[in-house]
Amino acid sequence: MIRDITIGQYYATESIIHKLDPRVKVVCTFAYIISLFCFNQLSGYIIAALFFWCITKLSKVPFKFIVRGIKPILFMLVFTALLNLFWTSGEHILIKYGVITITAEGVKRTIFMALRLVFLIIGSSLMTLATTPNQLTDAIEKLLRPLNKLKVPVHEVAMMMSIALRFIPILVEETDKIMKAQLARGADFESGNIFHRIKSMAPIIIPLFVSAARRATDLALAMDARCYNGGEGRTKMKPLKYKKQDIIAYLIMLLYITVIIIAGKYLPF
């Protein structure tokens, strides 16, 4: 399960989406996520789904890669869904059994909430699959540059994010290795109650932290050796410049948002 996290896993291919300026992708992903909360009826979801499907097709990223991002949050998804299901009050009661009440409104809200979460996750998954982490942090760095004036260390934060993303797969692999090593020595991660199981994670977490700290020291040395000296005086191998396609992408996004808002206001279902 731990291997399935897609965030930070770049899917290398040539597509229009891959070629877009990363700033466009970041802004549009945010806009898309916000747009998910701008409507509350079926037609909105259909439009959001269609739009997402089109972008996915354009990006040439296989659908199963995107869906993989949902698996790790499945638990959270089910949990919020259940909360919504049981705790939404409404007029049309479907089932009433003791303290449990399920209303029609609750069912509707549950489905919509779950859908929203799914779209949210696959939306951001698609962005990370179609953008290299370095581009992503470049974009964030450039978008947040105004904060520099408020003494926010934008470049440093962006750098840290990009390194974190780079090390996710490595640390995942390492966790896997440690787990197997502990299993081979008779560790048991599966049985017992929840507290017992949390306790049994310690032999995984501790070596993982130790090794992460060691990696961090090594990496810091390697960065020093390669003349890394903060953001000042740095040039870019891939500088960000808006091209025609990026403007078009913004316009398409704007169109989508308009459609979603209008649909939310005027469509009856």
Binding site: T132, P133, N134, L165, R166, A222, M223, R226, M237, K238
Partner: peptide, 15 residues
Amino acid sequence: ISNVVEEDVGFGPEN
């Protein structure tokens, strides 16, 4: 440092 080979090679010159 980077997730793409060419970007990693470019890291030093960028700095």
